[in-house]
């Protein structure tokens, strides 16, 4: 039983959450908001990279085509 006594946090009082006035609804809204913000930031990041890379591929292939071998 005392296997993790010195490294893990002490066992907590499991009834604590009932007495503590934590707004469950607010946490819920924050949780969903965070996930959606995360996903949209991620997709926006990908879109930016896609545009930048497309421009780069464009420029590079123009250079490859433009300076054909003599």
């Amino acid at each position: 039983m005392n296997e993790i006594a010195s490294t893990a946090p002490p066992p907590r009082d499991l009834s604590a959450y009932k007495e503590e006035p934590v707004p469950g609804g607010a946490l819920l809204v924050v949780a969903y908001a965070v996930v959606w913000v995360l996903v949209f930031v991620w997709i926006a990041r990908l879109a930016l990279r896609q545009t930048r890379l497309e421009r780069e591929v464009h420029a590079l292939s123009d250079r490859v085509d433009g300076g054909a071998e003599p």
């Binding site: 893990a8 946090p9 907590r12 009082d13 604590a16 959450y17 503590e20 934590v22 469950g24 946490l27 819920l28 924050v30 949780a31 965070v34 996930v35 995360l38 996903v39 991620w42």
Partner: peptide, 24 residues
């Protein structure tokens, strides 16, 4: 991306159900 989602929703849930932000 989904690991980040798990790790942000986890503490929000734990805050209410375990009474602390993070548990191991």
């Amino acid at each position: 991306l989904f690991a980040l989602a798990v790790l942000t929703t986890g503490p929000l849930w734990a805050r209410k159900s375990w009474g602390m932000w993070w548990t191991w």
